[in-house]
Amino acid sequence: MFPYEKYLRLDKFPHIWCTGCGCGIIMKAMLRAIEHSKIPKDSIALVSGIGCSSRTPGYVDFNTLHTTHGRAIAFATGLKLAKPELKIIVVSGDGDATAIGGNHFIHAARRNIDMTVIIYNNYIYGMTGGQASPTTPLGKKASTAPYGSIEPTFDISGLAIAAGATFVARSTCYHAVQIDKFIQKGLLKKGFSLIEVLSPCPIYYARPNREGTSVDMLRWYKENSIPIEVARKMSDTEKERKIITGILHNIERAEFCEEYRKLVKRVSKN
């Protein structure tokens, strides 16, 4: 029923993502959010880094910028400052955004520069063949953690909140209907908005860790996630190892381009 074709570069299909990969589900949610927020295609700039999720721009009919690994948000900062009327959306993976790209992620959040960052968190580096990422859970296997990862993981949403992001929401590919609501809120909010979406990687995460198919992973998300409203009333032990979904943070703070515009007004000649 939904007019996805209106937004797709149809000649690029079928896309390259593996069977059951969550990238397509999130891309769809993004398109619904854009449609509902009535943002014209010409004013959307979709910026991505390197990785599975970062192939999204190639498939959609916006101003699309596929940059270098981890640097999408840094490119996006330049884009937004140079052309503030552009609506900036960044799509990035858990590795792209918080491993190699972590520095740009926290600084853009600190500046509260107006962009909507969608992170496809599939717990692994998919494109390069299943290496461990900053969100590969403890004990889980990856091609570079054959004995199980011994590294504690990032709470990506928590990281964004701590760095200063003014809108942070988390969802999963099981809650596909909910994702576009959060993206839409992010789009319409002035400031650094993060939407973290847990996404199944059936080939490189689920299979080595015997977590079943994409269907099984979506069910796992359902059984292991709690909306924040409920989680607030639960004890830590009850919430332990659960995925807290919903709008985790939503505050107002000065937006960077706006502040820069004021500064120019104050000091510029004539």
Partner: peptide
């Protein structure tokens, strides 16, 4: 910017 790398990224996008 937060580092030189980000600076180079920003000027390309601009």
């Amino acid at each position: 910017m937060e580092d030189e790398l980000a600076s180079m990224a920003a000027i390309i996008a601009a």
